[in-house]
Amino acid sequence: MQAQELSFGYPGAAPLFEAVSLAVRPREIVCLLGGSGCGKSSLLRVLAGLQAPAGGSIRFLDAPLLQPDPRSALVFQQASLLPWLDVAGNVGFGLDFARQPELGAERHHARVAQAIEAVGLAGRAHLYPAALSGGMAQRVALARALAREPELLFADEPFSALDAITRAEMQTLLVDVVHRWHSAVLLVTHDIDEAILVADRILLMGGRPGRIVREWRVDIAAPRESHGGAVTELKMDILAALLALREPSPSATRPGTHP
């Protein structure tokens, strides 16, 4: 995916972001990092084709992107499972929607089974959402996206509501699944540690309106938890960049001036 000079804002309001250009390469995990209100979730929705940009262009698989593409998939913070469907039903939900590639019953069943196995829920396909923990529900949400065999997975803070241990498990699972399924990922997060642990590249978004202000390529070998010095050095660099975004301009702090 390539995006050039994107901007977006709601009618009658200031732009949420502008002049945003970025790319996500095949089999790459890119983390879009930033504080609350910088426009990163809105940017994700625009890139996914859920909202039209006010300006700029998006290309996906060498074609202009003007609407959601069936070769991409989304995972959000809430699993949003349908309570009347079991795990298999939730994972397969939407595979026969309009614009989805037509599947026969055998292929449909195979995709669902493979996705459930990939997220570690083999043997639990018959369970209903009421019987699932939060982490299991997010695994089902991830499996639902994977069943579409996406070229690009959009993920909007999908693990932020989970406890620390479950979150770490899901982060590891995400990296493993991407490598196994050969998908690319654009992950929105406000968590620096999460970005460092999973990303191939980190893009820092900030300002009002939001822009991409810094980029880091993460070359730390896996498992990254074993390289504490390199992880800490990168984290401190990112923290410094975040703090610089929050510092007031000199004119705002001179005596006798007003904000």
Results as ranks from 00 to 15, higher is better:
122 A>F: 03
9 G>Y: 10
257 T>S: 12
5 E>V: 12
244 A>L: 11
244 A>I: 03
75 V>M: 06
128 Y>W: 12
135 G>V: 11
57 S>M: 10
87 V>S: 06
218 V>P: 05
241 A>N: 08
78 Q>I: 02
133 S>A: 07
134 G>D: 08
44 L>Q: 08
164 A>G: 05
73 A>Y: 08
137 A>G: 13
134 G>T: 09
169 E>L: 09
204 L>P: 00
139 R>F: 08
145 A>Q: 01
23 A>N: 15
22 L>M: 15
178 V>E: 02
48 A>H: 12
171 Q>C: 04
177 V>D: 03
71 R>I: 03
124 R>P: 00
90 N>I: 11
61 L>Y: 02
14 A>H: 05
238 I>C: 10
118 A>I: 00
178 V>T: 03
115 A>P: 00
6 L>Q: 05
136 M>L: 14
71 R>S: 09
198 V>G: 00
124 R>W: 12
120 G>I: 05
70 P>F: 05
106 E>M: 10
192 I>V: 15
58 I>Q: 07
52 A>I: 12
238 I>M: 09
95 L>M: 12
13 A>V: 14
195 A>E: 04
240 A>W: 13
128 Y>N: 09
112 V>S: 05
237 D>P: 11
202 I>C: 08
142 L>K: 10
136 M>F: 11
132 L>E: 06
76 F>V: 06
172 T>Y: 04
18 E>C: 04
139 R>D: 08
11 P>W: 13
35 G>W: 12
244 A>D: 14
196 I>R: 07
146 L>N: 09
172 T>N: 11
23 A>V: 14
165 I>V: 07
75 V>T: 04
185 V>P: 04
118 A>C: 01
155 A>P: 11
65 L>S: 03
173 L>M: 09
116 I>H: 05
173 L>K: 09
221 A>S: 04
30 V>Y: 12
222 A>K: 06
165 I>D: 04
80 S>R: 14
172 T>H: 06
194 E>I: 01
